[in-house]
């Protein structure tokens, strides 16, 4: 009997583990596992074009990760993309006139937001919006720009 009980416990453990693994996979091996989004404050920024930016993409200052993208949505009035950024509370040091830009790590790598601190005394508070932004560079646009330029030069000649 003793033996049977311990066997049952093992089987129970096995099934529970397996189901837990399935659940974790089902939730896209995701949120549950990452570091809990550390308490911070959320500021927003509007972009014309965010390119391939994704939720949970890092936000960096001088290469240091200071927060993560929390939400991506569209402002229904301006039709621009609104990115909610969760900045860790220890970095509540950004001047009001800081700017945000979307960069790509490497040629094909992941996109992230880089912050450039401004010069004002007052700092960004939760809910504030960054006014100065620079959109993601879209490769197709660059290429077509380049081609048009070439074509224009040739016609001039």
């Amino acid at each position: 009997m003793q033996n049977t009980t311990s066997r049952d416990i093992w089987v129970g453990l096995f099934v529970a583990l397996g189901l837990a693994a399935l659940t974790l996979l089902a939730l896209n091996v995701s949120n549950l596992l990452t570091l809990p989004s550390s308490k911070g404050y959320v500021i927003t920024a509007e972009f014309d074009n965010i390119g391939g930016l994704k939720v949970r993409a890092p936000i960096k200052l001088g290469g240091v990760v200071v927060g993560r993208v929390e939400s991506i949505s569209i402002d229904p009035h301006s039709f621009r993309a609104v990115v909610g950024m969760n900045i860790e509370s220890q970095y509540s040091i950004f001047p009001k006139d800081s700017s945000a830009a979307i960069y790509t790590s490497g040629l094909l790598g992941e996109q992230y937001i880089g912050l450039m601190p401004g010069a004002e005394e007052a700092v960004l508070q939760a809910g504030d919006r960054i006014a100065i932004t620079q959109s993601a560079i879209v490769l197709e646009n660059l290429i077509s720009q380049f081609l048009f330029q070439k074509a224009a030069e040739e016609t001039k000649e």
Binding site: N28, V29, S30, T34, K54
Partner: peptide, 24 residues
């Protein structure tokens, strides 16, 4: 590799029906 990117990429690319359900 950045820890957040590791998970965020998985989360955005792995589809529940196409990948998980089919795997099961």
């Amino acid at each position: 590799v950045d820890s957040g990117s590791y998970w965020s990429q998985i989360q955005s690319q792995v589809d529940f029906f196409d990948d998980i359900v089919n795997g099961v």
